[in-house]
C-alpha cells in the first residue's frame, strides 16, 4: 500500500503537471480538490485517464468520483479493491 501511494503521488504530479510539488509534499490523507491540493474538474478527468492507463481500471460510475478521488489514500484503496487479477 505504501509503495502504491508513492507511485500514485509521482504519477499524479506527472499527469497533472504539478511541477511545483514533490511526492513528499502530498500527504496520504490530504484532500486533492478545493482547499487541499487545489485540483479542478479537468484534473479529475486526468485522474480517470491515469487509472485507465496505469492500472487498467475504468470508472464504472462517474458519480463515485468525489469519494474515490478524495485523497491519494482513497485512490490507492480503490485500486487495491478493483485492480484486475
Amino acid at each position: 500500500m505504501e509503495q502504491l501511494m508513492t507511485d500514485l503521488k509521482r504519477q499524479i504530479i506527472e499527469a497533472l503537471n504539478l511541477k511545483h510539488l514533490k511526492p513528499e509534499d502530498i500527504g496520504d490523507d490530504q484532500p486533492l480538490f478545493v482547499d487541499g491540493l487545489g485540483l479542478d474538474s479537468i484534473d479529475a478527468l486526468e485522474l480517470i485517464v491515469l487509472l485507465q492507463q496505469h492500472y487498467n481500471i475504468k470508472l464504472a460510475n462517474p458519480q463515485d468520483g468525489p469519494q474515490i478521488f478524495k485523497s491519494v489514500k482513497s485512490i490507492a484503496e480503490f485500486i487495491k479493491a478493483n485492480q484486475p487479477a
Binding site: 497533472l16 479537468i42 478527468l45 486526468e46 485517464v49 485507465q52
Partner: peptide
Amino acid sequence: KTVPSPALFV
C-alpha cells in the same frame, strides 16, 4: 491515438 487527454483538449 491512445487515451485522449482532457487537459490538452481544453
